[in-house]
């Protein structure tokens, strides 16, 4: 059995919509990687990096908290299930039960804290709390698998509910996108997971799954919709635009990213929305 190569580090960049404070950003992201190699269902050594992004729906209450909880639970559900894409209904049930449990505990704590602060839930919050919070969720696993001949191959496996997107880049060019392929597919009513939705069958029907192989040097980007639409409009923009280099996200810190997003907004190339990017290069 060959050695597992070092896993890539996930880079996380984000910025809130213009006019909002940092605390009001309703996107969330999370990544996790194991320190130790595991074994897949075929008995091969594997190591995985997991990442998820979520875009909380602004018209729901506590969308940021729901998105934050979902990304952690999505990673946990992928991690614990192993080849989670093989039995999607089981994976969806696990994710929904896990997140519902955490959400109930969060809500109980939240309401108690509000009461303790002398700010009990008001009549205008009650309907929103009853309706629940809503968010997209996109989860991905980058897995290194050591084959019998000792070589390592890299694959990605992803699931999506809504319009947060995954992009695979090779030599800086867009190779694959998931679940949306064209900018026209962005609607104003994307699929969302509701904190009070317990209909596992419906969610499993709506959830999309995909996978692909990564070659050394390939990049995987997970983004929420504003940046995803930017990426896809670039793809639709013709040869010149496609050939022009993407920003050097690898060298960006949070401020560089916020400045770049601001510039794109000012040029009317990107919608004013919260923006999140999780990036990894194998």
């Amino acid at each position: 059995m060959g050695d597992i190569p070092a896993l890539p580090r996930a880079q996380w960049l984000w910025t809130q919509k213009s006019g909002s404070s940092e605390q009001e950003c309703e996107d969330a992201a999370y990544s996790w990687q194991s320190d130790e190699a595991g074994v897949d269902s075929a008995g091969r050594a594997v190591a995985s990096l997991y990442a998820a992004v979520s875009d909380g729906a602004s018209e729901s209450l506590l969308a940021r908290d729901w998105a934050t909880l979902l990304v952690a639970d999505a990673v946990e559900s992928m991690r614990l299930a192993g080849d989670w894409w093989e039995e999607l209904a089981t994976f969806v049930r696990d994710l929904m039960e896990r997140s519902a449990l955490h959400w109930d505990a969060f809500l109980t704590r939240y309401q108690a804290e509000r009461a303790a602060q002398g700010r009990p839930i008001t009549w205008y919050e009650q309907p929103g709390l009853e309706k629940g919070a809503f968010a997209t969720v996109l989860g991905a696993e980058i897995r290194a698998t050591v084959l019998e001949d000792g070589t390592t191959r890299w694959f990605w496996y992803a699931f999506a509910l809504g319009d947060s997107c995954l992009f695979q880049l090779r030599d800086g060019r867009l190779l694959d996108s998931f679940p949306l392929c064209a900018v026209e597919e962005f609607g104003i009513t994307p699929q969302l997971l509701g904190s009070r939705n317990h209909d596992v069958r419906l969610v499993a029907e709506r959830m999309r799954v995909a996978h692909g192989e990564l070659l050394p040097g390939d990049e995987l980007l997970l983004t929420t919709d504003a940046l995803a639409a930017w990426m896809l409009s670039r793809k639709a923009g013709g040869e010149a635009e496609q050939a022009s280099a993407l920003p050097a996200f690898a060298a960006f810190d949070q401020q560089d990213f916020a400045d770049w997003v601001d510039d794109q907004r000012a040029r009317a190339r990107m919608r004013n929305d919260d923006v999140t990017l999780v990036r990894a290069r194998v």
């Binding site: 009001e24 018209e59 209450l61 506590l62 008001t122 009549w123 205008y124 919050e125 309907p127 929103g128």
Partner: peptide, 14 residues
Amino acid sequence: LTELSVKCAKEEGV
């Protein structure tokens, strides 16, 4: 006015 308030309600208030 109720529906507008509910629609614009966030954690910190309306």
